[in-house]
Simulated scan of single mutants.
Amino acid sequence: MTVIEVEDLHKSYGHTRAVGGVSFEVARGETFGVLGHNGAGKTTTVECLIGLRKPDSGRIRVFGEDPGRRRRALARRTGVQLQESELPDRIRVVEAMRLFASFYDRPDDWRAVLERWDLGPIGGKAYADLSGGQKQRLKLALALVGAPELVVLDELTTGLDPVARRETWTLIGDLKASGTTVVLVSHFMDEAEELCDRVAVFRRGRIVALGSPRGLVAETGTGSLEEAYLELTGERRDGVEA
């Protein structure tokens, strides 16, 4: 079953084209990577997927629904962790977990999720008093507390130390094993190579490659997804991304 369908998506801000003609599908239970540097169009595409942005043109369906028109209904089936999301400074960790769990019809036990993400010891702390890594773990826990069918994660391991990063990878693997569909937005190629069934490589608002990490490595004759990415985007020839 196809969970996400995107066909010829376009989105501009004034004279700046953020996304220009993007198309892809994501199957149920798939972990799908959206890869590219800042400004490549990744976040705009994802924000259109979850109904935060209105496309200029194109067609998007999530669980067969238009996210622009059915955002509230889809939100009950979707967990989202956005790179720029924030919480009120004085809300406490346990309060945030309890609040987000209340948004869903059949959430997971928020206390168990709190412990799974090693947030129990800081449950009484205010959001403003958390470290960067703690804030990131809390956002991830909030995205998962509703036991969603689809999880959208934007730069999920940014700010995490190497141990926490590896632990997060394990939890994403557990999500995949449970049948949850995951959209993973990242600029970490090792992360995508480890976790993703397929990836879409973005550059300047377009998809320049789409396939499995192993397939893209074989196609380019390189030794890793990072090297394949550099080859596919032209950065090996052009140097730093414009």
Rank of each mutant, 00 (worst) to 15 (best):
T44Y: 10
Y104E: 03
T78D: 03
G58R: 10
A73Q: 13
I60A: 11
D105V: 09
L74Y: 07
G20D: 15
R76M: 07
R98Y: 02
Y13A: 00
L82N: 04
V80D: 00
F100C: 00
A18N: 07
L49K: 07
R61P: 00
R92I: 07
D56L: 03
T43W: 12
V34N: 01
G14S: 02
H15W: 07
T16M: 13
R53K: 15
E5R: 15
G41V: 04
R61A: 14
G33W: 08
D56S: 03
G51Y: 08
E115K: 09
G79H: 11
T16Q: 13
I91R: 06
A18K: 08
G20T: 11
S57G: 13
R28P: 00
L114I: 01
V94D: 15
V26Y: 10
P107A: 06
T31C: 15
R116C: 00
L35W: 09
P67C: 03
F100G: 00
G41S: 09
R71D: 02
K11F: 13
V26K: 11
G29F: 06
L49N: 04
R98H: 11
W110T: 02
R70K: 13
V46L: 14
E95G: 14
V94L: 12
R111G: 02
V80Q: 01
R53E: 13
H15S: 15
R72Q: 07
I60R: 11
R90V: 14
D56Y: 03
R71E: 09
P67V: 06
D105S: 13
S23Y: 13
G39E: 06
I50S: 03
E7T: 14
F63D: 02
I4G: 10
L9Y: 01
V22M: 09
T43L: 09
S85V: 12
D56I: 02
